[in-house]
Amino acid sequence: MDERGLHRLIGTIIAPERLEDDCAIIPCGDLLMVASTDMLHETTDFPAGMTDWQVGWMAVAVTLSDVASMGAAPGQVLLAVGLDRPERLAGIMVGARDCCAAAGAELVGGDLDAHRELTLVSTGLGTVAPEHLVRRRGARPGDVIAVTGPLGEAQAALVGYDRHRKELLEPQPRTKEGEILGRAGVSAMMDISDGLALSLYDLLAVNDCGFSVDTGRLPLPAGVPEDEARELALYGGGDFELLFSAPPDVLPVPGVEAHVIGEVIPERVVLADGEPLERRGYLHEWTG
């Protein structure tokens, strides 16, 4: 069983449409509030060699990436720290604060207790006008498919291409780009932290159309042989770029570096170079 299978169980307990997006959506006066929470564990989520500052940065970045995917302006972040050693706290908190500051958010509180394994839970809030909210649902045949930056860089670092280590350890949430794209009128959007292929299947699950990508148009990690780079771009996790669809006349969008990689098609399939794309990427799994 993988995490997306367990999402279906949760959908029998709370409204399943609540699970369709990167964030929960909550009315907030004339605006909408979006809220996301992420749990990270040292052994499964923090690559070896990370500094405490980078740990704090990453914990915030993953949550603000979700806020960005909704077209929302980042607001506040809460950070709960299950701390294994007290001397780590200062570095973690400074990293979290610095990521907030870089993204235009504010670290406003959280929780602290003792854990055997370092565990961080970040909760991010943002706001957006209803007309600028972007959800995963909304893609239409004829839209283009695009991403905001190179894919596969984090995975490239994990397999030994050290030139991409900064992208792995200090991911950049695309908060500015997400807000601009929401105002520009893109039709659907999500972040691709679990890899491009899985993200396309996530979009397929909530849209009445399909997605066809041209692997020759993927923005690839530099310094990696082309065939390997294409594999990393399709299936590697940890990039935190935005994947979106939009009517062709929306692009280019000033202030956003967008790479068109394909188009939305009427058939409910995911294709790469005209063939079915394998559904795999970064997934939490349970066995037994």
Rank of each mutant, 00 (worst) to 15 (best):
residue 145 I to D: 13
residue 169 L to T: 03
residue 204 L to E: 02
residue 164 H to V: 03
residue 140 R to H: 12
residue 231 E to C: 00
residue 221 P to M: 10
residue 135 R to T: 04
residue 160 G to W: 15
residue 214 D to W: 15
residue 178 G to L: 02
residue 207 N to F: 13
residue 233 A to R: 00
residue 139 A to E: 05
residue 173 P to R: 02
residue 171 P to D: 13
residue 197 A to R: 11
residue 205 A to F: 00
residue 149 G to T: 03
residue 222 A to G: 14
residue 199 S to T: 09
residue 165 R to V: 14
residue 164 H to M: 09
residue 232 L to S: 05
residue 198 L to G: 06
residue 220 L to T: 04
residue 209 C to Q: 04
residue 177 E to M: 02
residue 177 E to S: 11
residue 149 G to V: 09
residue 183 R to V: 09
residue 144 V to C: 06
residue 172 Q to Y: 12
residue 221 P to H: 13
residue 179 E to Q: 13
residue 236 G to H: 02
residue 181 L to K: 04
residue 171 P to L: 08
residue 227 D to M: 01
residue 193 S to F: 04
residue 175 T to S: 13
residue 208 D to M: 10
residue 180 I to R: 11
residue 201 Y to G: 07
residue 224 V to D: 11
residue 213 V to T: 13
residue 130 P to Y: 03
residue 136 R to S: 03
residue 164 H to W: 06
residue 225 P to Y: 15
residue 154 A to C: 07
residue 205 A to W: 02
residue 194 D to L: 04
residue 198 L to A: 06
residue 209 C to N: 05
residue 168 L to W: 14
residue 176 K to M: 09
residue 137 R to I: 02
residue 214 D to N: 14
residue 210 G to H: 12
residue 213 V to L: 15
residue 157 A to W: 10
residue 236 G to C: 03
residue 151 L to T: 05
residue 235 Y to T: 00
residue 189 M to P: 01
residue 157 A to I: 10
residue 213 V to M: 13
residue 213 V to P: 09
residue 223 G to C: 05
residue 157 A to L: 13
residue 168 L to A: 09
residue 202 D to N: 12
residue 177 E to K: 02
residue 140 R to T: 03
residue 190 M to H: 01
residue 154 A to V: 03
residue 165 R to L: 12
residue 221 P to L: 04
residue 193 S to Q: 07
residue 190 M to S: 07
residue 176 K to F: 13
residue 172 Q to W: 14
residue 232 L to V: 09
residue 132 H to Q: 09
residue 176 K to N: 05
residue 199 S to H: 08
residue 189 M to N: 01
residue 233 A to M: 07
residue 229 A to E: 02
residue 147 V to N: 06
residue 182 G to V: 02
residue 161 Y to E: 05
residue 144 V to P: 01
residue 208 D to N: 11
residue 185 G to D: 00
residue 184 A to N: 04
residue 196 L to G: 07
residue 148 T to D: 14
residue 188 A to L: 04
residue 225 P to R: 08
residue 235 Y to Q: 00
residue 238 G to F: 00
residue 184 A to C: 05
residue 157 A to M: 11
residue 183 R to K: 14
residue 151 L to S: 04
residue 211 F to T: 15
residue 163 R to G: 14
residue 150 P to Q: 04
residue 136 R to Q: 10
residue 185 G to M: 01
residue 166 K to N: 11
residue 166 K to C: 07
residue 188 A to E: 00
residue 160 G to A: 11
residue 216 G to F: 06
residue 176 K to S: 07
residue 233 A to F: 03
residue 187 S to G: 03
residue 191 D to R: 06
residue 199 S to D: 05
residue 220 L to C: 06
residue 149 G to M: 10
residue 131 E to H: 13
residue 130 P to K: 08
residue 197 A to S: 10
residue 164 H to R: 01
residue 228 E to W: 04
residue 236 G to E: 03
residue 156 A to H: 15
residue 234 L to C: 09
residue 223 G to P: 11
residue 139 A to Q: 12
residue 132 H to N: 12
residue 169 L to N: 10
residue 156 A to C: 15
residue 156 A to Q: 12
residue 130 P to Q: 00
